[in-house]
Design a protein around this nucleic acid. Structure first.
Lengths: 211, 211
DNA sequence: ACCTGAACACCGTTCAAGT
DNA sequence: ACCTGAACACCGTTCAAGT
């Protein structure tokens, strides 16, 4: 079949399948040929909907990124908005750990990332933070979230292959290890976030100009 | 020349050249063939000194990681040691931004990374922090550092290619942008680090058991 | 408009053959 | 012991050819 009446592919279907592949088997498992096979199609066909593999990766990053909740910045006070954003951001990344590495060093900025950053910046400045501080606060929270997401990723991969596959053929040990990793990841993240928020509270008393 | 009297290659020379290549042209520019060409040798020759490309990447990560200063934990108090470690860690990563992505999600833990983590953990527990807190503090600082290093990386890559190459053929604008990025990166990092340290100070009063 | 086979220039890695 | 050419199974991407 050279051309079906209804297209076999759409950009959305391709991106969703690619994310599924990356989530399940890591970035290295994502090749255009392998992805095409999953979609019952040939590699060349993908290029009718996606201009390049980089474009595809950008699509994945975009799909993940738009799940982050920045709604707090349009309504609530900056403390709650910041906390909600940070936790939502982290939760979303933790759900797609294999995506984090290329999402963060991605080629050029995503529009969606820019719009998220604008929401944060806008919310903070409206709350009375000087623009310069707003920028740095956004940066600080992003560092923490991204670092935590990557840390979790690394942790998940660490001893899994050797300890579990070679020496402990049953799941229970690896499972316990992973559970502990999650606890440490979240504990470390919450520790830093709480400290950051209370540090900001003190700073706000100095430089903030409430409306 | 099939076999010279003195070997043309050593593992160290290969890794140093690879780091140089990655620093200068990014991870994507690192291929075994390209690296071999730089070393005046054929790709297959590299496999006499390096078991795999993954092994090579691990070597690079190791080379970078051992520059991080954790000496404070054996001598000074935990506050100073933590601050020195965090800033040194960040400075080292910032000097090799292209290395950060694969250093952090690297395949399995590096020995050097483990020894660094042990130094931190030991220093903190000797200072009276409960082990559980020591682990989370180490995690929190690592998140912040890694996130900041990646953020800087992303920032450096953002508008450079388009703005600078296409529309501003002279260096000045891009240079200014980069300078500003560095300032924001460092400001955001210091903001979060300071907040974290003072947050820890408060926590230490609760759970710390000074020797 | 959209799918395809074939081709291009690349990969990482192996291995017998050289010295 | 260490470097090499040739080969393997893979890549991303292009493009004329099909409908």
């Amino acid at each position: 079949m050279a051309r079906p009446n209804r297209p076999l592919l759409t950009r959305e279907r391709i991106i969703a399948a690619a994310l599924d592949l990356v989530d399940g088997h890591g970035v290295d498992a994502l090749s255009m040929r392998r992805l095409a096979e999953r979609l019952g199609v040939r590699a060349a066909s993908l290029y009718n909907h996606v201009s390049t593999k980089e474009d595809l990766l950008r699509g994945i990053a975009d799909l993940v990124m738009r799940q982050v909740d920045v709604s707090g910045f349009t309504t609530g006070d900056w403390r709650a908005a910041l906390a909600t954003w940070a936790r939502s951001y982290r939760t979303v990344l933790a759900a797609h750990p294999n995506v984090v590495p290329f999402m963060v060093n991605g080629p050029g900025r995503l529009e969606i990332a820019l719009s998220r950053a604008d929401a944060v910046h806008g919310g903070l400045t409206r709350a009375g933070w000087p623009p310069r501080h707003a920028t740095m606060i956004g940066a600080a929270v992003k560092y923490l979230v991204v670092g935590a997401a990557l840390g979790s990723f690394a942790g998940g991969f660490s001893d899994d292959a050797q300890v579990y596959a070679d020496r402990y053929p049953n799941l229970s040990q690896a499972h316990l290890l992973r559970e502990r990793q999650v606890e440490i990841d979240e504990g470390g993240f919450e520790l830093a976030l709480t400290a950051l928020l209370s540090g900001l509270e003190a700073l706000y008393a100095e430089v903030g100009r409430p409306a």
